[in-house]
Computed example of a mutant assay.
Amino acid sequence: MDEAPDTRQLLSTRIEQKQQAVRSYLGRERPRRNKLSNISVVGSALAAMLTAGPAFGGTGFTEALQGIFSLGDDSVVWRVLCLLAVLLSVAAALATNFANSHSLSDRVSAAETVNAQLEGLQDTLSFGHIAVDDALKLYQQYVAQVAFVDEVASR
């Protein structure tokens, strides 16, 4: 391949464009991954807590809640606790499945890795410590790992 400065610059520009696309992807998907993970963990924990009271406290627990909330029947306490536990469990299961069905965590990790690799490649290329042919091969290897990342439209 041509070692001319314009060839090196062209590859450098491509690297920058891919980095921009990867950073844009990470900016969208990291918060989504974190939100789904938090919903899953918090929903599961709260569902467990809602069922732990009656499980450990028995009728004394439900009667105490009945008195606190001035309910006529302790079965209302059971129904409300069970309904809330079911809703939280469903939310946690959905969040987990949405994250897993799209391999969100794996994709975000791959994008983070490629972003770091492209940054290193860009630095190496900029300082002339790598031949353009070698840099192009590395670039192709790196971007193949994030084929799911769409290019950012030029502004």
Rank of each mutant, 00 (worst) to 15 (best):
Q141F: 13
S103P: 11
A144R: 13
Y142D: 01
F69I: 02
V143C: 00
E3H: 13
Q17T: 03
L84N: 04
S24C: 04
I15C: 00
A52S: 06
D74H: 07
R14D: 02
K35A: 11
A48C: 07
K35E: 10
A48V: 13
L104C: 08
A135P: 01
A116W: 02
R155S: 13
Q20T: 15
Q141T: 11
R32M: 00
S40H: 15
Q141Y: 11
K35I: 09
L118S: 11
H129N: 12
Q122I: 02
V77K: 03
F69K: 03
F148N: 04
R28F: 02
A99L: 15
W78Q: 04
Q9E: 14
F61C: 15
T62W: 13
V86A: 06
D150Y: 09
D150E: 11
E112M: 01
T124L: 15
S103C: 10
S12A: 14
I130E: 09
V152E: 10
A93Y: 06
S105R: 07
V41F: 12
Q19D: 00
M49K: 07
P5F: 04
V41S: 07
L81A: 13
N115S: 14
G60N: 04
A52Q: 12
G27Y: 02
R32S: 02
S154T: 09
E151F: 00
